[in-house]
Write a protein that binds this DNA or RNA. Structure first.
Ligand SMILES: [Mn+2]
Ligand SMILES: [Mn+2]
Ligand SMILES: [Zn+2]
Ligand SMILES: [Zn+2]
Lengths: 138, 138
DNA sequence: AACTTAAATAGGAATTATTCTTATTTGAAA
DNA sequence: TTTCAAATAAGAATAATTCCTATTTAAGTT
């Protein structure tokens, strides 16, 4: 369990109920888009304004507390910033999984061949998870 | 120069002036978003409707004539479908470059470690291009 | 514990993005 | 040419996002 109060204050953001609720909900969901997040939060927080959501998601992304995850053909999703990782997205059930993959060698290769300095990487593999592979066989 | 007429007809789409103009403009731009594309096309095609743009971009993406390129923090861009490639995005000048990078080994690794069948991959490296690296040194 | 105040919020208006509807046009097959 | 399903333009409708502002609140100070 992260200490959201501390995270927010370290970034010069007041630890409002709204922000803490947003962070908790994102942490719980893993990867979630604006709409689902808003609907979830409204249940226990009926006065929350949509503008507050958008403003905070932007601010917290700017401050690198959150990360925007853009998957092909989907609405932007938000996750808590944590260790660098890639995403496995299942075409069957839609599940999004975090995985670590060492790509330092590929980055080096890319930098040398193209005179390009890589500062960040974004990798998504789409396909079929274990379960959805099995279902196809039945 | 691709034969757009043929590409469209092979996909059971009429080769309309609008579609051909869209494909030409995307080919010329490389990677372009809806707004810029629309503004470009309007210059030489004043009656083109925005709805026609959206409809055709979706249809042609569905048919894999176009590819939606989602880059973190940017509007969706469209490109002509071609050989698989990764994207290098420069934080300095915004340039988007296509590069090939062999990642078969990484995909294999990922599949074996995670019981996941990879069907497609999406890789973006952000950083600094040659020119923008040099500018920083001055 | 009350006081202070800049920051943040709720609520709604405004703007922007996208999809839908329909009368008219058109590509291409016959 | 004639035919007609497919596609378009134009604009309405809807959805997504940002903006505005009076009110509230977090958190530092007394
Ligand atoms: Mn993740
Ligand atoms: Mn490309
Ligand atoms: Zn699955
Ligand atoms: Zn550059």
């Amino acid at each position: 369990m992260s200490n959201y109060q501390e995270i927010l204050q370290n970034n010069n953001l007041k630890a409002t109920h709204q922000r803490i609720a947003i962070l908790e909900a994102i942490d719980h969901a893993g990867h979630i888009d604006v709409d689902k997040l808003f609907k979830n939060l409204r249940k226990h927080f009926p006065t929350l304004a949509l503008g507050t959501m958008y403003r905070n998601l932007s601010e917290m992304s700017d401050k690198h507390i959150l990360l925007e995850v853009t998957l092909p053909g989907q609405k932007v999703k938000y996750e808590l910033k944590k260790e660098p990782h890639i995403h496995l997205v299942c075409n069957g059930c839609g599940k999004i999984e975090d995985r670590t993959l060492d790509i330092e060698d590929k980055i080096k290769e890319c930098e040398e061949e193209n005179d390009f300095t890589v500062l960040d990487s974004n990798i998504v593999f789409t396909g079929l998870c274990q379960k959805c592979q099995d279902q196809k066989k039945v």
